[in-house]
Amino acid sequence: MFIILRGKGISFGRIVVYLLLLAVAFLCLMPFYSMIISSTHTNADIARKLLLLPGKHFMDNYTRLVDTVPIWRGFLNSVFITFTSTALTLYFSALVGYGFSKFNFKGKDILFVCVLSTMMIPGQLGIIGLYKMMDIFHMLNTYFPIILPSISNAFGVFFMKQMVDSSVPAEILESGRIDGCGEVKIFHRLVLPLLTPAIATLGIFSFIGKWNEFLTPMILLFDNNLQPLPVMIASVKSQFATDFGAMYVGIVISVIPILIFFSIVSKKIISGITAGALKG
């Protein structure tokens, strides 16, 4: 309650406002609390009681889950897919954005409009064709169709082009050229370092997006040992129809890494959205 008392005046209106804010915060956190508490109880208790305090059966539920579903394998798969995809998105978005920003080549404007219009295409439009094509190329159950498309991230290109426009001065490029640097070397040595803040912002958002991706990996990866975490959570749901304890442990394992990640980068995320909204 001290936060209210620290205000300049304690009015009835202010208390109502704080109560409203706390109520919404409670509704935001309650499902996660309920999830963690439920994961520590037996199925019988979950089914019968309102559970408010932690129990002692987390390890039992956990053991039943990992006996059937290789959830940590899924976690590592997600880590691998997300890191490689994000690295590709960042490098190529910066390269393509730089190409569009600082060079004049034939058809540049039309090509940039093409990049922007790919953003309007809904993701599932080509999914049936992609499935059939990957079948023909023997790329089902491989990471190529999951990771390689990260190279052509239209939003990333758009974002990076704006960032190059505003934070890479032409004089620096000229001085690099006078020193005899090649164009590729200029990009690596001079442009990329200047883009570090932009890379951090784009990196966080593409990381989250990739970590949560579901439809494409679910369709293209049916080998259990290759699936990322969201696909495994979906199979936990179908395999553990009445084993609530094990299911709760599964979603706890899915949420906790995101919670840790968010507690580290929440400021960057929130300022990134705010900056993006002002441009929109």
Partner: peptide
């Protein structure tokens, strides 16, 4: 690179669909 990857994993599947 953007366009090569988009043609393979974006446009081709859309047309094939």
């Amino acid at each position: 690179p953007f366009f090569i990857i988009f043609l393979i994993f974006g446009l081709a599947p859309i047309l094939y669909s």
